[in-house]
């Protein structure tokens, strides 16, 4: 029993580190010939999944493999040699990292932008009406950590509005912020417009007037090591073209 406990303990010590791996990683070896591998920021999950169906319908025999994750996670995977053809980032900083490492073919194109909005649970228990309320230490306020794109955007927004946020938690990703609000743990959170739209009736949205001053731009690029550069180019065209823009707009994204 003691021995088992020791082994279990050793395993448990490694577990949290293992848990840091990306959940959405795909098997890169699966049928490379007719497969387009797209790495995209988590906030693009809904729109890109829809676009992938259309892409497969118009390109016979082509399979689109989508891998969603935090932009910085995806960048480090691509840097370590993950076999992706296209990368769509939720911010310019992460794309710049890839450009700096010569991992991008051609210039990235901006295809969408996103702004922040306040979300509260549907019954708005904290009676949140403006960004000022997010400075109230008595309310449970959740934002992204400054280290991740949605967090740095939140900080910029607060600065622009002259508000000092009093967060009770700085989450790792915008999804975590949204979950804390929809589950009712938090009174208010700052998320992207698209996330608020995606959550539907699970949240109440409060607009922030200064939000337009802090715009998050989404760039997309074909990768230098792409195995399917032609298909990758087609994908970029789909996203930046009328068809793609229509889907993105419907999800709440703004023009770049």
């Amino acid at each position: 029993m003691k021995r088992l406990a020791t082994v279990a303990a050793a395993a448990a010590l490694l577990l949290p580190l293992a848990a840091c791996g990306n959940d959405d990683a795909v098997d890169p070896r699966a049928d490379v010939d007719s497969t387009l591998v797209v790495y995209a920021a988590a906030s693009l999950k809904g729109t890109f999944t829809e676009l992938a169906k259309e892409f497969e319908a118009t390109n016979d025999g082509v399979t689109v493999q989508l891998s969603f994750g935090g932009s910085s996670d995806l960048v480090s995977q691509i840097s370590e040699g993950a076999p992706a053809d296209v990368f769509a980032s939720a911010d310019e900083k992460n794309m710049d990292t890839l450009v700096g490492d010569d991992l991008v073919s051609g210039d990235p194109e901006d295809f969408a932008s996103n702004t922040l909005v306040i979300v509260t649970p549907p019954d708005n228990p904290g009676d949140v009406t403006s960004l000022d309320d997010l400075a109230d230490p008595d309310l449970d306020v959740v934002v992204c950590a400054p280290q991740v794109p949605c967090g740095s955007a939140a900080q910029k927004l607060a600065t622009a509005a002259g508000v000092t946020l009093a967060p009770d938690s700085e989450e790792q990703s915008v999804t975590d912020v949204l979950t804390k609000v929809t589950s009712g743990e938090a009174d208010a959170g700052l998320v992207y417009v698209t996330d608020a739209k995606g959550a539907g009736d699970d949240v109440r949205t409060v607009e922030v007037p200064q939000a337009s001053e802090v715009v998050n731009t989404y760039p997309i690029a074909v990768l230098a090591d792409a195995k399917q550069p032609g298909l990758a180019r087609d994908w970029v065209e789909l996203v930046t073209g009328a068809q793609g823009q229509k889907v993105l707009r419907a999800a709440g994204f703004a023009r770049p």
Partner: peptide, 30 residues
């Protein structure tokens, strides 16, 4: 070494709930 339950349940705020494993995960970003 606890990570998963903490980040899900307690949140992440420096000095209050951000333990070493959470700090490691966050520092990876920058």
């Amino acid at each position: 070494g606890e990570f998963g339950a903490t980040i899900t349940f307690a949140g992440s705020l420096q000095g209050v709930t951000r333990t070493l494993p959470l700090e490691i995960y966050l520092q990876r970003e920058t």
